[in-house]
Write a protein that binds this DNA or RNA. Structure first.
Length: 230
DNA sequence: CGTTCGATGCACT
DNA sequence: GTGCATCGAACGT
């Protein structure tokens, strides 16, 4: 079933954790494409220096200030679309960035979309790489600026509970610093399925290091550093 | 393995 | 004019 608005109307770190294993779906005339969410990042409030709301309300970040359960899509580096699910109440700007999916439906369609604009045939894309990374998954699903502001609880772009729990083996989820930002790296607000082949960031970002495990210290806590494998 | 670097468009100051 | 919540090709070790 499609996740209801109430799902998103909660503390953003809880929504981030609970989005892991859910199915992101995009239905278009060319078909339905979907994937299980395996990696997300939380961006929380004007006090979070990496959140787009850090400068206060602007035209671009307006959706963050709106109701929960809305898609916030923006163009990044002039060439990639990134998709977020807006969380928390009106006027509490926060969202969860969807960073990676395990492809489930419409894999051929994803391959064709990934091939678009490149000289290479659709065949060349490995399934695990189709939705690895926030810019890649939007291209595979056909998500663009047109989807900014769409209602995730009642549009052709939505997230559903497929009755799947990840990680499948009962291993705890991993938390670590967010990727690709220059400020706010002290907050371990990236959540992912450790070791999953579709997680972005390379091997170093795909470990379940002790300090990267869930605990509830994320509510109290302030981890100063994250160890790196050697 | 690792790191660097260019592509590319636009919101924001 | 500046700086990106990125990606992958091209290098160096």
């Amino acid at each position: 079933m499609t996740l209801p608005r109430d799902f998103y109307d909660r503390p953003t770190l809880d929504v981030a954790r609970d989005l892991i294993g859910k199915l992101l779906v995009h239905e278009t005339p060319s078909g339905r494409a979907s994937g299980l969410i395996v990696e997300v990042e939380a961006y929380i409030g004007e006090s979070d220096p990496a959140c787009h709301a850090a400068p206060g309300r602007t035209r671009r970040n307006a959706p963050l200030y709106g109701p929960p359960g809305i898609a916030y899509v923006y163009l990044n580096y002039g060439m990639h679309y990134l998709v977020n699910a807006v969380t928390e109440a009106v006027d509490a700007p926060a969202a969860v960035l969807i960073r990676a999916l395990e492809p489930r439906e419409g894999i051929g369609l994803m391959r064709r979309r990934r091939a678009r604009g490149t000289g290479k045939p659709a065949k060349e894309w490995q399934e695990h790489g189709l939705c690895r990374g926030p810019g890649n998954l939007t291209k595979s699903l056909g998500i663009s600026l047109d989807h900014n502001g769409l209602n995730l609880t009642g549009s052709r772009l939505f997230i559903e509970d497929a009755g799947i729990t990840l990680p499948a083996d009962g291993t705890p989820l991993a938390w670590g610093p967010r990727i690709g930002i220059s400020v706010g790296t002290e907050s371990p607000w990236r959540c992912f399925v450790p070791g999953h082949p579709c997680v972005s960031g390379g091997a170093r970002s795909n470990y379940a290091w002790p300090e990267r495990r869930d605990p509830d210290e994320r509510t109290t806590g302030t981890r100063s550093s994250v160890a790196r494998p050697s």
